[in-house]
Amino acid sequence: MQDKKAFVAIIKENEGIIYKITRVYTDTGEDQKDLYQDVVYQLWKAFDSFKGHSKISTWIYRITLNTAIAYLNKSKRRVKQVRLNFELLNPIDKKDTLTEERLTALYAMIKQLNVIEKGIIVLFLEGKSYQEIATITGFSSSNVGTRLSRIKTKLKKTLKTNMYGT
């Protein structure tokens, strides 16, 4: 009972993290809901083994990213998914179309990256330090730095291509 209460509180506190990551790894709202449910399920499954050695957010980032990877690998193999009826968070004020456009463009750029880069850029955008990204992803800090600079170059190229169509 106590466990359930604590778990629910943690999920409520961090539902934004789950929303942001699941959106990166899915193309439609329905898929995002499926992955969202999957993440909550995986977190619940791993909750007992969470010993508190790391920060709760670190644990959530790790499991959410891992579940996203697993989801990508089995999405084509899904049988029947029982989807709960719930609303996803709304990242912008509905009237603010400019922000909406910029956010759509931002997600589109991230989605063009490969699976390794997606995880790293999301954590970077979340304001995590190289060391924190390294702890969550399992790469070394220097490797995270190298990869981020490659991502930066890649994003610049994508932007150029989108602007000039070449």
Binding site: Q42, S49, R62, N66, I136, T137, G138
Partner: peptide, 8 residues
């Protein structure tokens, strides 16, 4: 999923 790092 619960134990591995992203890389693993």
């Amino acid at each position: 999923i619960g134990r591995n790092s992203y890389k693993e």
